Every structure is written in structure tokens, then in C-alpha cells.
Computed example of a mutant assay.
Amino acid sequence: MERNERMSGTLYGLGIGPGDPELITLKALRILQAADVVAYPAPEAGDSLARRIVAPHLKGGQTEIAIRMPLTVARFPAQAVYEQAAEDLAAHLAAGRSIAVLCEGDPFLYGSFMYLFGRLAEDFPVEVVPGVSSLTACAAALKHPLVSRNDVLTVIPAPLDDETIGAKLLHTDAAAIIKLGRHGPRIVALLKELGLAGNAHYIERATMPEQRILPLAEVDPASIPYFAMILVHRRGEQHFMEFQS
């Protein structure tokens, strides 16, 4: 398909933040309310978290497209789902309609929007609006700085194997372990084995009404949800004390 920016609508990838509706940026809010079509990821059954985040800001009267997909690790990303969604969105764009695609956190930080971006960016005008990421939201909620001075921060997806995670933890100043869920028990055990459990801070569902912050020792590993994060700093409380002197 040849790009025709004069006739085509624009595809917007909107970062809408980690959960608190007030953490959407002014730019994302403006585009959200002006778009002809609002699309968002959703589970195969049930409500969309992304739509729930922006619900207070929706003006009504817009076409809504729920991109329903399996959220199990074994079936994600669901390529067929994204192929079909890209075709559906392309039809609206070709007709001159603007589309706001909602993405929790930031679109280009493990965001599902990138799978649509890869399929549509060559044929239609696209604008990506960054959002407040879960990394910064968790640090703010925990009241614990991520990094300072020349610290190196490593983002570690929990599905990686123990050897890889252990090596990354031992060769960085600070780490954010994400995508916990069913990997929670293994990650908690690994942190204890490496002697880093005392330097770890646990939070789940940051900025949402269900937010919980617990000492790692009090966390039930078997109940850790996907939307949970563990922040670790090798200097532990010494890192925090540096800001008090």
C-alpha cells in the first residue's frame, strides 16, 4: 500500500501511564479526545485495563475497537491477532479517520503498540506519544530512587532463566525485575540465594486502587501478579542514605 498522508488518518500510539487516570499526559489526553477511533488491547474475555484507565476521559461517540488477544506467555504475542487488528485499523486510516491506540505505560517500553507500529508505520502517518512508565511509577510509589550519579539500571524480564538473571543482577548497580506473575517464586528464591533479598523492594499494581507495597519477606510468592515489580539496588539502604548527607 502506498502512503498517502493527505488522505490518510493518523495512527497515534498513546502512552496512558501505569494505571492512575491522572497520570496521562496533556498531549495524550488531547489526542485521545480528538480521535475518531479508540483502540485498545483486551483479554479474550473481560474488560480492558487500558480502557479502564482512560474511561474518565472518554467523551463518548467515538468508535471503539477492542483488540482481544490471549495474554498467556505461551501464546503472546499472538501474531494472527495483530495481523487482523492491523487490517481493521488500516481500513479506518485509509478512510481518513484518526486512531488512538492505547498502551499502558509507554508504547515503546515493552508496549503492545509496537506490534501494530511494525505493521502500519510504512503505510500511514504515525505519531508515538510517550507515557509515564511503570519503572518510574513504582519508584515514586515506593519513595525509593531508581538510580543516582553514574549508576547503571538494568531492566530484567522475569521469564529469563536464573543464570541469565543472576548474571545481570551481579553486574549492575540497580535492577527492575518485571513481568513477575508465575515466575515470582523463582525470582524471590534467586534474590535470597544471591544475598539481595534485603536490598529488594516489592510493589504490585502501582498507582492503581489495588496497589500493594510489601517487604519481600512478607510476600507470598505464589500470589504475585503479572503487574508487579521488584526494585533492587546493590548498595541497598546505603543508596537511600546518600541523599540525606
Rank of each mutant, 00 (worst) to 15 (best):
132 V>M: 11
107 P>Y: 11
215 P>G: 01
144 H>L: 05
141 A>R: 09
109 L>Q: 05
223 S>W: 02
50 A>Y: 06
113 F>S: 01
77 P>S: 12
182 R>N: 05
50 A>W: 03
190 L>S: 02
161 D>C: 13
178 I>C: 11
135 L>F: 13
237 E>W: 10
40 Y>E: 02
158 A>K: 00
229 M>R: 02
8 S>I: 10
204 E>W: 01
22 E>M: 08
115 Y>Q: 00
6 R>D: 12
78 A>P: 10
84 Q>G: 03
197 A>S: 15
81 V>C: 11
115 Y>S: 09
220 D>S: 11
80 A>S: 15
152 V>L: 14
92 H>C: 11
170 L>C: 12
87 E>W: 09
110 Y>N: 10
5 E>M: 06
128 V>H: 02
2 E>A: 10
163 E>N: 14
166 G>W: 04
44 E>D: 10
15 G>T: 03
69 M>S: 10
91 A>R: 15
166 G>A: 13
2 E>N: 15
109 L>N: 03
227 F>A: 12
120 L>V: 07
143 K>E: 14
129 V>H: 00
125 P>D: 08
175 A>S: 11
79 Q>H: 14
47 D>Y: 06
34 A>Q: 15
80 A>V: 06
92 H>S: 09
74 A>F: 08
41 P>R: 00
21 P>S: 07
150 N>H: 11
169 L>V: 05
118 G>T: 03
49 L>K: 08
2 E>F: 11
9 G>F: 01
86 A>V: 10
195 G>R: 00
55 A>G: 12
208 M>V: 08
97 R>K: 15
119 R>F: 04
85 A>Q: 08
210 E>T: 09
176 A>L: 08
82 Y>H: 09
20 D>C: 10
94 A>I: 05
140 A>P: 03
181 G>I: 03
197 A>G: 12
64 E>I: 13
30 R>T: 12
126 V>Q: 01
190 L>M: 04
105 G>W: 02
24 I>N: 00
245 S>E: 11
4 N>Q: 06
76 F>S: 12
161 D>K: 08
245 S>K: 11
128 V>I: 09
97 R>I: 06
17 G>A: 07
63 T>V: 15
187 I>N: 03
90 A>C: 08
167 A>V: 07
39 A>R: 06
99 I>R: 01
232 V>E: 01
187 I>Q: 04
25 T>M: 01
216 L>K: 08
215 P>V: 05
181 G>M: 07
233 H>A: 08
116 L>W: 04
5 E>A: 14
172 T>K: 06
39 A>S: 11
151 D>R: 02
64 E>L: 15
181 G>E: 06
56 P>L: 02
33 Q>S: 00
234 R>G: 04
240 F>S: 05
143 K>V: 09
218 E>V: 04
35 A>H: 01
167 A>L: 13
12 Y>H: 02
204 E>Q: 14
46 G>F: 11
175 A>R: 07
5 E>Q: 12
48 S>M: 14
89 L>N: 04
215 P>F: 09
99 I>L: 13
142 L>Q: 13
25 T>I: 04
147 V>R: 00
198 G>D: 09
167 A>H: 13
78 A>Y: 06
96 G>V: 07
145 P>K: 10
207 T>P: 05
65 I>Q: 05
17 G>V: 00
147 V>T: 14
245 S>C: 10
210 E>N: 09
46 G>L: 08
